[in-house]
Amino acid sequence: MSESSTSPTGSLTATTISIAGHGDDRIEAYLARPEGETTRGGVVVIHHMPGYDRASKEITRRFAELGYDAICPNLYHRDAPGAAPDDAAAVGRANGGVPDERLVGDVAGAAAHLRSLSTSNGKVGTIGYCSGGRQSVLAACSTPVDAAVDCYGAFVTGVVPEGFPMKITTLVDKLPDLGAPLLGLFGAEDQYPSPEQVAELDQRLTDLGKEFEFHSYEGAGHAFFAVDRPSYNVPAANDGWERIETFFGRHLGS
């Protein structure tokens, strides 16, 4: 990413706002922006299954530090408004997870909010971790975005295990509609997605002629970006962040 895309002083603002999500429902979202009125791209951060938590907000602020307007919609807002992240995530799991149609509507609403800002250059990317990785791909297949990042999202391909508690399907039938370049970052020691599932996705996207790049890290398992978990893998996370910066810099501009 070019130096000019970042805030000159590193200063930013971050606040909780209300946006129009799926079905024009008002949902909570966390918005972080670099100071100044420089025209720039936007990033929708799709939080992981544990919810709209401190870690997700830290990631959102990191994108603002990198020079983007960034927003993280609270996907569990309807399930448990005002609840603590762990409690809201528990309710979300009990309900079978975030329905795909609702996810797409909420991400589209978050992207529309970013594009409405005076600093927007009109370009918006998505990024998601864990369940959010799959949802980032889903969004890129279902609503206009300019780039998407999948960080170890399970069940984009493969087979959902029998008895799996979440109401989820793979995205194989949606991949022909992928409308944006895709960056995939995976752990070679992960089970969901496994290296075999990543290879299947690679082959399907190749056959479809889609623009994508995948990187898998030896010795890294699931959630290797999570600084607050034992799964955190410093070399993999550092390299992954560099690739994300380069990828968004190329496709979202500044």
Results as ranks from 00 to 15, higher is better:
119 T>N: 09
181 P>Y: 06
48 H>M: 13
128 G>C: 03
24 D>F: 05
150 D>N: 15
127 I>N: 00
121 N>F: 01
35 E>P: 00
28 E>N: 10
73 P>A: 05
237 A>T: 10
71 I>S: 07
177 D>E: 15
132 G>W: 02
168 I>W: 02
221 G>T: 11
52 Y>I: 08
235 P>N: 10
106 D>A: 00
229 R>Q: 14
88 A>T: 10
237 A>P: 07
127 I>H: 03
248 F>H: 05
228 D>I: 03
18 S>A: 13
111 A>L: 01
174 K>W: 04
107 V>Q: 03
84 A>W: 00
195 P>N: 11
227 V>T: 15
99 P>W: 05
108 A>Q: 05
33 R>Q: 15
151 C>Y: 12
200 E>F: 00
149 V>A: 11
28 E>M: 00
71 I>T: 07
2 S>A: 15
201 L>K: 08
40 R>T: 06
212 F>C: 03
206 T>N: 13
97 G>Q: 03
249 G>A: 13
165 P>Y: 08
250 R>Q: 14
72 C>E: 13
118 S>F: 01
83 A>F: 09
126 T>Y: 03
174 K>N: 14
245 E>Q: 14
126 T>A: 12
225 F>G: 12
4 S>W: 03
140 A>Y: 02
26 R>V: 12
105 G>E: 04
118 S>G: 15
101 E>D: 15
79 D>T: 10
134 R>W: 06
58 E>K: 13
145 V>F: 03
115 R>V: 00
231 S>P: 08
148 A>L: 06
167 K>A: 15
169 T>K: 11
146 D>G: 01
180 A>N: 05
109 G>D: 02
13 T>N: 10
66 L>W: 09
164 F>W: 15
182 L>K: 01
33 R>C: 12
115 R>W: 01
220 A>G: 10
108 A>G: 01
22 H>V: 03
53 D>H: 11
73 P>E: 06
233 N>G: 10
140 A>H: 00
84 A>Q: 14
53 D>S: 14
14 A>M: 05
214 F>R: 03
11 S>P: 00
193 P>V: 01
156 V>D: 07
185 L>N: 03
169 T>Q: 14
40 R>P: 03
105 G>A: 02
172 V>E: 11
252 L>E: 07
223 A>K: 09
180 A>K: 00
5 S>G: 13
47 H>C: 10
250 R>L: 11
99 P>K: 08
21 G>L: 03
7 S>E: 05
223 A>E: 15
122 G>T: 08
203 Q>G: 12
136 S>F: 03
165 P>I: 09
211 E>I: 09
219 G>N: 11
97 G>S: 06
23 G>E: 08
209 G>R: 11
96 G>A: 02
94 A>I: 06
215 H>Q: 14
202 D>R: 14
112 A>Q: 08
157 T>F: 01
208 L>I: 12
5 S>T: 09
33 R>A: 14
108 A>N: 04
131 S>P: 04
